[in-house]
Write a protein that binds this DNA or RNA. Structure first.
Lengths: 346, 346
DNA sequence: TTGTAAGCGTTATCAT
DNA sequence: ATGATAACGCTTACAA
């Protein structure tokens, strides 16, 4: 069915090694012969059999993307799709294949990991996990499989690529401070996720830098769902915040709803800033001021770092890469910086 | 580094063939010996090298998911993520690996296809394309690679899995008719996509069934973006519809905006029904009545059909599978069926 | 510069 | 029931 080196060799009247050399463009082959071989390759549409090649070279040109989180929940948020778009872009550019491993069931996860990592299919792995204690990490370290984490990780040896959550949160809160707010509440994310911790840290940093005292009654912890945004807002209201920084847009939408229900106007009575800049942020009324992360770049950067490591001479790729990409404040109408809502939707 | 059959064989004091038999549980091996081998396998954590195995068996246990569309655009809609979640679920259950191929650049796409299909890595492919003239399809047919399309396709030979777009649209429009509407507009999707054609067809079927005359001025064609929802609504308004069926939620949000801007109330002045049930549908005010597709099931079903074909004795898997999954009407507040908006967000 | 041959880790065929 | 042995399609010393 599929052509083999041998058949191309016969057609071109050379040996199979010569064809191999041409295909992998080794220099040592007469241009005349090379042309003849290339001609046959083009005519026949020959492509080397990946498995056979990978068996001898020990490289598959496949990188794995492992997403251990409860997929169904997180996939309604465009984070993973955009991340994948970025990874894809880089993979395509470098002719790598991408193997996607999603795990929604914690049950049997350990076994699934083995299935994926032990198969020998993967040259390297990108891990998109939000848990510090992700069991995959020690596994990968032990097995010596090159990997890059999206998000950060305390272990000195790991490579990671992350968005500047601290800076993003600080930027948001400083924006509120600049607008004159002092009683600034926060609806933080789950504190077992490093990204959430960072955003809370950024909040503290901004307050400290401007000598605004931190008040515990102005700090609530949600779980990133819209409904937790509602309850956290209700929890914060007695402390009379004039502004709230919310650690993601979904919760910010909940906050918006809760504030409206409490008879408060946004941004007049309470200013609001979200995080992520998902589509819904622009769609609600008033449109949310929020912090945008370079999610797609995060993905392509992770792939770039990984492929860089894979292609490095010794395979180690030098000291661990720790990359932090900047975030961006998207000013809309929920923070009061822009006064009137112009016509929207083009 | 990684263990081989030979090493396990040595440790267990048997030949490499015996170990192979145990690993692939062929019946013909004494239980005593089998136990001994399994013991070693467990202790060492041995796993067969996938590439080597696939070289001889000609099966990789990898299925490809190919998404040829402009990724960046379509990924903000949760369709692909949910589809992938479904495919993943089935893949995990059947111990298949999933290779994801996204193409955003039309340039060099032909070459990328070859890269993916010609690699020999894939046992089969799931194609999620919305174009009838997708060049991949004839390619796959010619190469004899088993594949399943998500969406439907006129070619008799192809397997496909699709949501019942005709039925979903009909259901939506009949709902409006039942509520007393006669002047029902439609904002259809791009008519080069089969799914869009189907929804328009469902609209016609519903009107015909209830002897409501079709009026060309009540039909507009958008491109699935929110802003096209705005312009199409403006285009429809002179025909004075009392209800509009919109072929996706994003355009419905645009319609909502355009109606509000025209000083019309939803649902009192104009009733609105969307399609897809993306998160934004529930978030806008009033929440959109819409048609929900079983996207995740679509994905898992596609994978199931494909894997069924791959595991069928001859490899052909009988006559082509054509699967249509039912859709569901989600009644909220934009159609006027439910009168008052209760407290939301739990 | 080119060809020959060994070997990558499996499975599968054939003896035993 | 088990063990040699020959593929599978490729890369890569090593020879020529």
């Amino acid at each position: 069915m599929a052509l083999t080196l041998e058949q191309i060799a016969k057609q071109a009247g050379v040996s199979r090694s010569t064809v191999s050399r041409v295909v992998n463009d080794h220099c040592s082959v007469r241009t005349e012969v090379r042309e003849r071989v290339l001609q046959v390759v083009r005519e026949t549409g020959y492509q080397p059999h990946a498995a056979a090649r990978s068996l001898v070279t020990r490289r598959s040109q496949i990188i794995g993307v492992v997403i251990p989180e409860a997929v169904t929940t997180l996939f309604i948020d465009p984070f993973f799709p955009l991340l994948l778009a970025g990874v894809t872009e880089t993979c395509n550019a470098h002719r790598y294949h991408l193997m996607l491993s999603l795990f929604d069931r914690p049950a049997g996860q350990e076994e699934m990991y083995q299935h994926v990592l032990g198969s020998g299919y993967l040259d390297g792995v990108i891990v998109a996990s939000f848990r510090l204690d992700e069991p995959l990490i020690p596994d990968l370290l032990e097995k010596g499989i090159p990997f890059v984490i999206v998000g950060h990780h305390p272990d000195k040896r790991v490579n990671y690529v992350d968005a500047d959550n601290v800076g993003g949160a600080r930027m948001a809160v400083e924006h509120l401070i600049r607008l004159g707010h002092r009683r600034i509440g926060i609806i933080a994310g789950p504190q077992n996720m490093p990204g959430s911790q960072d955003r809370l840290l950024g909040y503290h940093q901004a307050l400290d830098a401007h000598r605004v005292p931190v008040e515990q009654a102005l700090v609530a912890e949600g779980d990133f769902t819209e409904s937790s945004g509602v309850t956290c807002t209700q929890q914060l209201l007695p402390a009379a915040p004039t502004a709230i920084f919310v650690a993601n847009d979904a919760m910010a939408v909940g906050a918006l709803r809760a504030l409206r229900r409490a008879g408060l106007q946004v941004p007049q009575d309470v200013a609001l800033i979200g995080y992520d800049d998902v589509p819904i942020a622009a769609a609600v009324e008033p449109a949310l001021t929020t912090v945008r992360q370079p999610i797609t770049r995060l993905g392509s950067m992770a792939a770039e770092v990984l492929i860089g490591i894979l292609n490095s001479p010794n395979g180690a790729g030098g000291p661990p890469h720790k990359v932090i990409l900047p975030t961006e404040l998207v000013v809309r109408y929920s923070c009061g910086a822009l006064r009137e809502s112009p016509s929207r939707g083009q």
